[in-house]
Amino acid sequence: MLELRLVQGSLLKKVLEAIKELVTDANFDCSATGFSLQAMDSSHVALVALLLRSEGFEHYRCDRNLSMGMNLNNVSKMLRCAGNDDIITLKADDGSDTVTFMFESPNQDKIADFEMKLMDIDSEHLGIPEAEYHAIVKMPSAEFARICKDLSSIGDTVVISVTKEGVKFSTRGDIGNANIVCRQNTTVDKPEEATIIEMQEPVSLTFALRYMNSFTKATPLSNTVTISLSSELPVVVEYKVADMGYIRFYLAPKIED
């Protein structure tokens, strides 16, 4: 028996919007720790890891570990039927091939049940070791989204370079090239407007902008984004999901031949 009640149901709606472009089908895993997912895109270049910790739910019942295969487009269709202020509850019986999404309006005057078929998915799980990153950049998520969007109108790839001067995003294409430098800036009115650069050593890596732009679909989840870079490691682009967890996107770099 599984029953997860999330008062801030809009978080789940935003999570689905953030990952459904990248991944088509995925297994959602439930355990005592929380509700999680790890899935790669079809070309195995990008990976999304989601964790919503059990403590973040108003009610969290998971009698035994359960893996539920879902088509994310179909989950998104279901969740779009929930109001932004609705409380969302996920329910599944042991051995059932369906999951039920229950939507309750804030004043309890409307209650809806949407039952969705589960599917069997052969997913490949990758072990992601804890790593020391050479540079960690924390910046406003809207600013990062703007940079990725702007650069993708010029080129297909972005070079992200961190030096003591700041973080530089560069691209080049047929019509020309572009460089955007963001310096550390902590003298802002609100902490979420700050750009904070922690650098152990300079790092410069090249990534496909198409994936970066896909990651920025998570922007509505968090005012800030954290970009962790290390030579010869996939970049990690992390958005916090309120105080209950995170979405982390991993993207393999381009390799010089």
């Binding site: 790669m40 070309s43 195995h44 270049v45 990008a46 990976l47 490949e124 799980h125 990758l126 072990g127 992601i128 070791p129 790839t157 090249t206 496909a208 010869e232 490691l233 996939p234 991993y250 393999a252 770099p253 381009k254 390799i255 010089e256 031949d257």
Partner: peptide, 14 residues
Amino acid sequence: KSSQGRLESFFKPS
């Protein structure tokens, strides 16, 4: 000239 890396080059199946 550069080629796109794949995640399996960095992370092993668990």
